[in-house]
Design a protein around this nucleic acid. Structure first.
Length: 561
RNA sequence: UGACCCAUGGUGUAACGGUAGCACUCCGGAUUUUGGUUCCGUCAGUCAAGGUUCGAAUCCUUGUGGGUCAACCA
């Protein structure tokens, strides 16, 4: 076998170099650090796959750590959904479920240590004053009048902040770094602020809470995270991340930034997703059109397909927008291998086989999955009156139309070849019924008719078909990057046709047994999954992704746009 | 007019001083009882200008373009 050189992304290269130099004694420890203030989305999925995937690849570990330093926005509801989503994606953190809030006592100790060392001070300025003294990216900041406060006073004040003696917003603890630094984050960043808020885990124990910059790197360090992978927007924080580690003389975790995921027609901003929910554009966080993990799960995406997607988009530092077609490719690829085939008619047209005996039913075997012989076969009831797809019949077809038409023979999948003999219309000229004759010798698997047809269509028997509702989903927006327009709000690009409900669909009786979450293919149509809204007497299916449709392209080409 | 980061086909990503490759998309063709799948093929790329070198996508300089940073958010 030819040795193929595996190509590594830049993070893997760093890790392999570290492994080679034995920098961390062979350890590879990563972490996934969500803030429990919202639901996970496709962008998080990339990060999860990266962090857990890297650790798996190099025999390391990944910690799940909730970055819960802001009690105002965080809640256990999110903790639970985040854990469920990560597990569903197929990753496990064993017993390493950590919370930044568990580190509050240590963080407090370190703050005290820094005050004693003259590296932190209590600032009585207001938020506005601090902002004003901070300067701008092009102008240096000014030092706070409280910057030179005596160490003992700082210590006393900070302890009293913790004791709840001061009002919210009246004081903060700041690191003494460099107000003239060209990096805004180094201009004496706030370490602690006062918040009289109930924390989802620590309750009312604390009324001072550390800021991200004084919690994240320290948490990494406490956990001996070797490679702390985050998105590009934290690049400017890295000098501060390193500064705290050096100042505190603690384990040197290393922050490495990569470009976050952007996908056409999908939003990955918590704020915008929240608006979609609150303003009623979608039905909830798990609406199948949402980019949330829970939405994608409900839509019928499989964990394997999302992992594959995360793998294929790659890891690099340049800004990127992934084409939606790659995501579709990944789901189809996975579902094609595993999804059971089912016949369903989404837009039914009645078909009567005039020469088939009235009242007769035969059971015709059909394969469950041609890609997987192990999947076996099932029996489809067949009788005189069937439903076929309305667009599988045309009275006056264009060239190269291989489906049913007067004078055109087609095969009914796994059944017989039929020939159109008559068309019944209503007063509007709308076709309501197609009459055909079937060729008895053309029975699937024992065809002796010698007839060759170009088209095969799917069908269901009218008397045994189940009625169902089918929700056809399309992209949520009319443009690929709805958030990028400087003039118009992203909701202006909401796709009114992102959900189309088909209420008269007919599906073969075998689906009676399917479970929510199971994915299967409606033959020639697409991949679908049962929605939790389903009831025994009213099945509801979600379109996951349609099948590729090369005929649609040909047909569109023949038609003036 | 600051700092930091980025720049390879339409999209995404490799090549680490020595033949610019892979995937998706697009477009052709073969097979097909799913106009699906599978298979084969075509088109298409190093931001620009200088420099170093026998040799530059790769190193250096400058420019251009893009991103991030002025929450007591993460």
């Amino acid at each position: 076998m030819a040795e193929e050189k595996e190509s590594l992304n830049f993070i893997e290269q760093i890790i392999e170099a570290d492994l080679a130099s034995n920098k961390h004694g062979g350890d590879v420890i990563t972490r996934f650090p969500p803030e429990p203030n919202g639901y996970l989305h496709i962008g998080h999925a990339k990060s999860i796959c990266l962090n857990f995937g890297i650790a798996q690849k190099y025999g390391g570990r990944t910690n799940l750590r909730f970055d819960d330093t802001n009690p105002v926005t965080e809640d256990t509801e999110y903790v639970d959904s985040i854990k469920a989503d990560i597990r569903w994606l197929g990753f496990d953190w064993d017993d390493r479920e950590y919370y930044a809030s568990d580190y509050f006592p240590q963080l407090y100790e370190w703050a005290i240590q820094m005050i004693r060392a003259g590296q932190a001070y209590v600032d009585d300025s207001s938020a506005e004053e601090i902002a004003a003294m901070k300067g701008t990216p092009t102008e240096p900041g000014k030092e706070s009048p409280y910057r030179t406060r005596a160490m003992s006073e700082n210590l006393d004040l900070f302890q009293r902040m913790k004791a709840g003696e001061f009002e919210e917003g009246s004081r903060v603890l700041r690191a003494k770094v460099d107000m003239a630094s060209p990096n805004m984050h180094m201009r004496d960043p706030v370490m602690y602020r006062i918040k009289f808020a109930h924390h989802h885990r620590t309750g009312d124990t604390w009324c001072i809470y550390p800021m991200y910059d004084f919690a994240h790197g320290q948490s990494d360090s406490m956990e001996h995270v070797t490679h702390s992978l985050c998105s590009l927007e934290f690049e400017n924080h890295r000098p501060l991340y390193d500064w705290f580690i050096q100042t505190l003389q603690i384990y040197p975790s290393r922050q490495i930034e990569f470009a976050r995921l952007n996908v056409e027609y999908m939003l990955t901003s918590k704020r915008k997703l929240l608006r979609l929910v609150n303003e009623g554009f979608v039905k909830g966080w798990d609406d199948p059109r949402m980019s949330t993990i829970s939405g994608m799960r409900r839509r019928g995406y499989t964990p394997a397909s999302i992992r594959e997607f995360a793998d294929r988009v790659g890891i690099a530092k340049r800004e990127n927008v992934i084409e939606f077609s790659l995501l579709e490719y990944c789901v189809r690829e996975d579902l094609n291998k595993v999804a059971q085939r089912v016949m369903a008619v989404l837009d039914p047209l009645k078909l009567v086989i005039t020469n088939y005996p009235e009242g007769q039913t035969e059971y015709l075997p059909t394969e469950n999955n041609p890609e997987d012989p192990q999947a076996g076969t099932r029996e489809m009831p067949f009788s005189k009156v069937l439903y076929i797809e309305r667009d599988d019949f045309m009275e006056d077809p264009p060239k190269k139309y291989f489906r049913l038409a007067p004078g055109n023979m087609v095969r009914l999948k796994s059944a017989y070849i039929i020939e159109c003999t008559d068309v019944v219309k209503d007063s509007n000229g709308q076709v309501t019924e197609v009459h055909v004759r079937y060729i008895p010798e053309s029975k699937s698997g024992q065809d002796t008719s010698g007839i060759k047809v170009k088209g095969t269509i799917h069908w269901v028997a009218a008397d045994t078909a189940l009625n169902c509702e089918v929700r056809m989903y399309d992209r949520l927006f009319t443009v690929p990057n709805p958030g990028d327009d400087p003039e118009r709000d992203f909701t202006a690009f909401y796709n009114e046709e992102s959900l189309r409900i088909l209420d008269g669909a007919k599906v073969e009786p075998s689906v009676k047994e399917v479970q929510v979450g199971e994915g299967f293919q409606f033959l020639r149509k697409g991949y679908f999954t049962l929605d939790p809204d389903s009831r025994a007497e009213h099945l509801v299916f979600n379109l996951t992704v349609n099948l590729k449709d090369s005929w649609a392209k040909v047909a569109a080409k023949g038609q003036p746009a």
